[in-house]
């Protein structure tokens, strides 16, 4: 049942520009560094001995922003496709459980954001190679900074999807999302428990995997809470 729902959801996002968004996100993040390194490459090379690490950290200043913004747009899009003609009622009147409907939406958004992470990995590695940052390519670190922000952002995904799918007015999740993007941007100023800080992969323990694990754990909690609330509500 869940597989056919996911397939149907992928059909519904056709022609909505969501795949384009999936491409633009990671491309934009790397493109900003193209400008940065294009203008002042020599200066940036002098900043740190490990040129690869410095490059990756530069990329990572914008990844959390892009990921949070992407999640806000995608979740709100997913909900608005059903909201537009109140297709929720038609969808829920089909022989499917409401839990599966919610899980399917969550899966589709996760898939798109995950694909963005794959693209980010490719773009980051590709542009890095053209810069001549050194022969010793830190693959593991590139993987870390491509995929861990995605897992660390799962609580944001859970929260945004919850608010988007139960709000009649998409202005509510978008407003919340805008606040989230600002918080993600001010990550260094925030305490570790703020979920919008997690995609930046910085914490007091200096282990980025902690953010990813926290993200998966707390993301799961928010997902379950959202699903229970979605199931409990009457469909108008």
């Amino acid at each position: 049942m869940i597989l056919s729902l996911v397939k149907a959801d992928f059909l519904k996002i056709k022609r909505k520009g969501m795949w384009l968004l999936c491409l633009i996100g990671p491309f934009g993040v790397v493109a900003l560094q193209m400008v940065n390194y294009g203008v002042r490459k020599d200066y940036l090379f002098d900043q740190m001995d490990d040129r690869w690490l410095y490059y990756i950290l530069n990329i990572n200043t914008f990844t959390p922003l892009a990921i949070v913004l992407g999640i806000v747009i995608l979740t709100s899009f997913m909900a608005s496709i059903e909201d537009e003609t109140n297709a929720w009622k038609q969808l829920v009147a089909l022989p499917v459980s409401k839990r599966a409907v919610y899980l399917s939406k969550f899966t589709v958004v996760s898939c798109i954001v995950f694909l963005s992470s794959v693209l980010l990995f490719l773009f980051m590695l590709g542009y890095g190679l053209t810069l001549g940052l050194g022969a010793d390519i830190p693959y593991l670190r590139i993987i870390e900074y491509s995929f861990l922000p995605f897992f660390a952002a799962l609580p944001v995904l859970g929260l945004q999807l919850w608010v988007a799918s139960v709000s009649k007015n998409q202005a509510i999740p978008v407003t919340l999302g805008a606040v989230g993007v600002i918080l993600a941007y001010s990550a260094p100023l925030l305490p570790d428990w703020v979920i919008w800080k997690w995609p930046a992969l910085s914490n007091d323990w200096d282990h980025s995997y902690i953010n990813a694990l926290l993200g998966i754990g707390f993301g799961l909690v928010l997902y379950v809470l959202g699903m229970i609330d979605f199931k409990r509500r009457d469909v108008k």
């Binding site: 729902l5 059909l11 929720w88 009622k89 009147a93």
Partner: peptide
């Protein structure tokens, strides 16, 4: 069922709309 105003996905064709339900049914 058809409840109140018809629900559909305006950016899809009639066939694609039905296909979205067919996959589930």
């Amino acid at each position: 069922s058809l409840v109140e105003n018809p629900s559909y996905y305006p950016h899809l064709t009639a066939k694609e709309n039905l296909e979205a339900s067919r996959k589930i049914l």
